[in-house]
């Protein structure tokens, strides 16, 4: 059965979805979904929650999300949230502070990465759509990594295991200490 993969959804957080063209398209896809008879909507997603921090000068964290194999090698870049609005791409100056992701992927990438790069998110829960993101990944054991680094703040990484292809419902989470509250991975078996 064919699946519609709304790629442009992958970076839009639930709680802070501004009224942009992309989100207008999102609202359009909901009625569109009923037009086709072969459309399947899966609940494959990663929820990333940042704490609200009571600090004098808060900057939203830079965040990278990626799939890596058991040896740590990056397989798929899922999301990179950074300051995309600065003139002359100056927001890229701090990408290196996502130092795990920078080594595994970022330093070799040409920014922005299509379908991966996006603006920073405010505190709260953001949802990343994972539908179809791992279709081309060979069967095996992987980890979904999340790394957050904040200006004048700290850095934290979390990871949850994921075996592909998904054979039974996955609902795994990891708790953070300071820069990340938690991450939660929800995956359903491929149809």
């Amino acid at each position: 059965m064919a699946k519609v993969t709304p790629h442009f959804l992958s970076l839009t957080g639930r709680q802070n979805r501004p009224n942009t063209l992309v989100n207008a398209l999102y609202r359009l896809t909901v009625p569109l979904a009923f037009l086709g008879t072969t459309v399947t909507v899966q609940a494959d997603e990663l929820e990333v929650t940042f704490p609200t921090l009571n600090v004098a000068e808060y900057h939203a964290p830079y965040v990278a999300v990626w799939l890596a194999d058991a040896r740590g090698k990056r397989v798929v870049d899922i999301a990179v949230w950074y300051d995309t609005d600065m003139a002359n791409n100056e927001g890229e100056k701090w990408l290196k502070d996502l130092r795990m992701w920078w080594r595994r992927s970022g330093r070799s990438a040409s920014m922005p990465i299509d379908g991966v790069s996006g603006a920073t998110h405010r505190p709260g829960t953001s949802s990343i759509d994972l539908n179809g993101r791992f279709e081309d990944v060979p069967a095996g054991d992987y980890f979904v990594w999340v790394e957050a680094a904040r200006e004048l703040g700290g850095r934290e990484t979390l990871k949850v295991p994921l075996s592909l292809p998904v054979k039974q419902t996955v609902n795994t989470s990891a708790q953070g200490q300071h820069e990340l509250s938690s991450i939660q991975l929800l995956m359903e078996p491929a149809q």
């Binding site: 002359n88 791409n89 100056e90 890229e92 100056k93 990408l95 290196k96 920078w102 330093r107």
Partner: peptide, 8 residues
């Protein structure tokens, strides 16, 4: 020793 961006 390791920096990011278009130039630095």
């Amino acid at each position: 020793t390791s920096v990011s961006g278009d130039s630095e």
